[in-house]
Design a protein around this nucleic acid. Structure first.
Length: 336
DNA sequence: TAGGCCATCTGGTCCT
DNA sequence: AGGACCAGATGGCCTA
C-alpha cells in the first residue's frame, strides 16, 4: 500500500529522544533509583551472601528447592517462614525488574509513536498529538495515500484533508488544519519570497516526499531536523499563494511555540469532522473559505477559523468574481 | 472542578 | 523460569 521506502532500522537506531520535561527527568531519576534498588536487591539476594545468617538462608533456600522438587507442595511447612521471606524478596526483585522492563517497553512504544508523529502531516515538537489521535491520523493518512495509489489520481484538496481528519477529535482537526496552513506558510517563506511562482508544484509540499524529486529520500528519522524536513507538508500552499501578495498583515507564526488550536466553528468553514464527503462542487467553496480565512485572520492562526458561517468574508466578492479563474489555476496546480 | 491524557505499577497470560 | 505483552487501576498534570 504505502510504497514509501521505510527503513525501520533508521528509526530504531536513532538516539533516544531527548526528554525535555522535568517530569521526564524525574522519571529518569526514578528509573535509575529503582534500577539501582533492583540491582541491590539482586546482588543481595543472589550474590552477596557472606554473613553466616545469609549463608544459612541460602542453604535453606536450596534445601527448600530440593524439597519442592521432591514434595511439590510442602513449601509452607516446616521452615516456611524464612523461605517465604527469601521468596518474597525474590518476588520483589522480579517485580522491580519487571517494572523497569515495562517502563522501557512503554518508552520504546512512545518513541515509536514520536516517530510516527514525525511522519504524519502534522508535527510539532512542542504540541504533540495525543497517542490515539496520532494513530487515527496515521491511519487516515495511510488510507488517503492508498486511495491515491489505487485511483492513480491526485484528489481534490478538501477531499484529501477530509480523509486526513476523518474521525479525529475537533481539537485535533483544528490542529491539523492549522498545522497544514502554518507549514504552508513556512514553505512559502522558504521559497525566497517568491510565493507566486513556485519552482515546484505545491503538491510536493503536500504529498509524501517521493512525489518530489528534491525530497526523493525518505524523511531522515535520525536527525534532529525532522521538524524542518517535515514542515513542508501542506495542502494549502496553492490557495495561500493567491492571497500572499494581498495580505501583508497576515504573517502566520512559525509552528514552533505552543500552538493553541484555532477555535473552529463546527458548522463553519473547515467543518470536516464526521461529515459526509463533500461533493466536488462544494469543495471549491469550502476550500476558498478556509484558505482565504486562514490567510486573512486578523489575529493570525488563533482567529483563522472563528468567523461564523453567516459572516461576510471581506473578500467574498473578490473570490466569487474570480472563482472560475482561480479554480482553473488551482486545478492546474494541484492536478498538474 | 471535571475530564482528558499520560506514566507507572501490577497481576495475568502466553511464549521461548 | 523468565521475558514480552496486555489490560486494569491509580495518581499526577493540564486545560476548559
Amino acid at each position: 500500500m504505502l510504497t514509501l521506502p521505510f527503513d525501520e532500522s533508521i528509526v530504531m537506531t536513532e538516539p533516544p529522544i531527548c526528554r525535555k520535561f522535568s517530569r521526564e527527568n524525574e522519571e529518569a531519576k526514578q528509573v535509575k533509583k529503582l534500577e539501582s534498588c533492583a540491582k541491590q536487591l539482586v546482588s543481595h539476594g543472589k550474590h552477596i551472601r557472606k554473613t553466616p545468617e545469609e549463608e544459612t538462608e541460602q542453604e535453606e533456600e536450596d534445601e527448600d528447592r530440593e524439597e519442592e522438587d521432591e514434595n511439590g507442595c510442602q513449601e509452607d511447612e516446616g521452615q516456611g517462614k524464612k523461605m517465604t521471606k527469601v521468596r518474597q524478596e525474590r518476588i520483589k526483585i522480579r517485580r522491580v525488574e519487571a517494572n523497569a522492563r515495562e517502563r522501557g517497553r512503554m518508552h520504546g512504544l512512545n518513541d515509536a509513536l514520536d516517530n510516527l508523529r514525525k511522519v504524519v502531516p502534522c508535527y510539532s515538537k512542542t504540541q504533540k498529538l495525543s497517542k490515539i489521535e496520532t494513530l487515527r491520523l496515521a491511519k487516515n493518512y495511510i488510507w488517503a495515500l492508498s486511495e491515491i495509489l489505487r485511483i492513480g489520481k491526485r484528489p481534490d484538496l478538501l477531499t484529501f484533508v477530509q480523509s486526513l481528519c476523518k474521525g479525529l477529535s475537533q481539537p485535533t482537526t483544528n490542529l491539523v488544519a492549522g498545522c497544514l496552513q502554518l507549514n504552508a506558510r513556512s514553505f512559502l517563506m522558504s521559497q525566497s519570497g517568491d510565493t507566486l511562482h513556485h519552482t515546484r508544484s505545491p503538491y510536493t509540499s503536500v504529498y509524501p516526499p517521493y512525489h518530489s524529486p528534491e525530497l526523493s529520500t525518505p524523511p531522515s528519522h535520525g536527525t534532529l531536523d525532522n521538524s524542518k524536513t517535515m514542515k513542508p507538508y501542506s495542502y494549502c500552499s496553492a490557495y495561500e499563494s493567491f492571497y500572499e501578495s494581498t495580505s501583508p498583515e497576515c504573517t502566520s507564526p512559525q509552528f514552533e511555540g505552543p500552538l493553541s488550536p484555532p477555535s473552529m466553528n463546527y458548522n463553519g468553514i473547515f467543518s470536516l469532522k464526521q461529515e459526509e464527503a463533500l461533493d466536488y462542487g462544494k469543495n471549491y467553496n469550502y476550500g476558498m473559505h478556509y484558505c482565504a480565512m486562514a490567510g486573512r485572520g486578523p489575529l493570525g492562526q488563533s482567529s483563522m477559523f472563528r468567523l461564523p458561517t453567516d459572516s461576510h468574508f471581506p473578500y467574498d466578492f473578490h473570490l466569487r468574481s474570480q472563482s472560475l479563474t482561480m479554480q482553473d489555476e488551482l486545478n492546474a496546480v494541484f492536478h498538474n
